[in-house]
Design a protein around this nucleic acid. Structure first.
Lengths: 232, 232
DNA sequence: AATTTCATGTAATTCGTTACATGATTCC
DNA sequence: GGAATCATGTAACGAATTACATGAAATT
């Protein structure tokens, strides 16, 4: 099975779902478009693309980018149609689309971890509401768990720590608390029919949102196999 | 050369400087005591300890922990004191101390990266003020740089992004901005007052009058048990 | 006596980077 | 024609995890 990166695979599939792209551009989108994403290097990206092709989720097509991005460069040489080559444009296959769909709906306990969560969130636009709820709530309880440990640890060691260590912990906790509040807002907003967020121009939802649909907090899947866990 | 981890090496040295410990305990301190630290596994820690011994910075001594840490387990049988063995207690050598001192004063451009910074900060109590300033300011400008990029990228792509991606970016930026403000406070507080407590782990005359000038910025302490808390 | 927690390690594997190597295209 | 940027790759390495393996001490 080979268990490719997960995050990278997911993000690549998700970006290519929107439109075909070649590797170089893909990487830029990875770094900028998605919010939190760390910069993957080419040494990571290209081999990953290869394996995705091998899996049948992508196909390589040579050359000729569909639409040279509308950077009003007046030039636009006519040679572009036949002349382009050496670029490899990757396009999602039907199987790839299906696979991505499956990844989207699958909420494993990985999905609440920091980077994984950010990746999931970045494609919430493609995600069904029910799944969004699960991910948001899973993330939240993951963070609350973390907070609990921090609090406990702090209470245990408070006196033995110097000011700086204390301040670091305090700041760390505050950050987590802040993210919890953020999640609360998001969850709240998902629950109440969505589209009342600050500066929210569009709503691409296709759901009826009958009054009942309050996400129903499914608190399960507490089975995180963490063999070397401590701080309990 | 072999370039051992950096962060882990630094943290281990720093913790052992305060008092000798064995690996198991060391790992717990790594996870809890220091604020932000991710959990290093034994598979990482023990080999690292080995190389540090090989470098002459640590020595292994068998058995008998000097002071069983006051873990508030109500039981605490007195028999535990003499019986200990099979533990390997690691102690910092003179060379190790020197090396750590050197690491402390060395501010490379690595020092402003996320985890590296947290590690540095965790040992600010042992760090000279001048260095603290460099690290804080380095970190700040690193973050401001990052903010700049985020802003630019956001301005470029704003319209083409869906609500969720936008929200993710917004939240990301807000987090960074928040950390910048935190750094500002810290820098301000370093600048105005605070006797530069030099290294000396012993005889740290901590009058700490908690006055306006001197000491860290005062934040609300929401971590105190607080009569009706009962977090467990 | 059995189980949990403490304690130490090793081998294989995963995930990702850096440095290198190459070449096409666009800008000046 | 030369520089910058676009574009694709590979080999070597690095950092750290997971799964495995072992055993001693404390608790029940």
């Amino acid at each position: 099975m080979s268990r490719r990166s997960g995050i990278l695979e997911f993000a690549v599939l998700g970006l290519l779902r929107e439109s075909p792209m070649h590797g170089y551009e893909l990487r830029k989108r990875l770094n900028t478009s998605l919010g939190i994403f760390r910069a993957f290097s080419y040494g990571t990206l290209y081999p990953c693309l290869k394996t995705l092709v091998a899996s049948g989720w992508l196909i390589e097509e040579p050359g000729s980018v569909p639409a040279p991005p509308a950077t009003g460069r007046g030039v636009a040489p006519a040679s572009s149609l036949a002349g382009r080559r050496a670029k490899i444009v990757y396009r999602l296959t039907a199987e790839g689309k299906e696979h991505f769909e499956e990844l989207l709906s699958h909420t494993g306990p990985d999905a609440w971890e920091d980077e994984h969560f950010a990746a999931r969130f970045a494609f919430f636009g493609q995600t069904e509401r029910e799944v969004r709820m699960r991910v948001l709530e899973g993330r939240r309880s993951r963070l609350e768990e973390r907070l609990e440990k921090m609090r406990a640890s702090l209470a245990r060691t408070r006196e033995r720590l110097d000011d700086y260590t204390l301040e670091l912990q305090r700041h760390g906790m505050e950050s987590v608390e802040r993210e919890v509040r953020w999640l609360n807002e998001l969850i709240e907003s998902e629950r109440s029919g969505r589209d009342q967020r600050r500066s929210s121009p569009e709503s691409s939802s296709q759901e009826d949102t009958t009054g009942e649909t309050g996400g129903l907090p499914r608190h399960r899947d507490h089975t995180r196999p963490d063999p070397s866990d401590d701080t309990k």
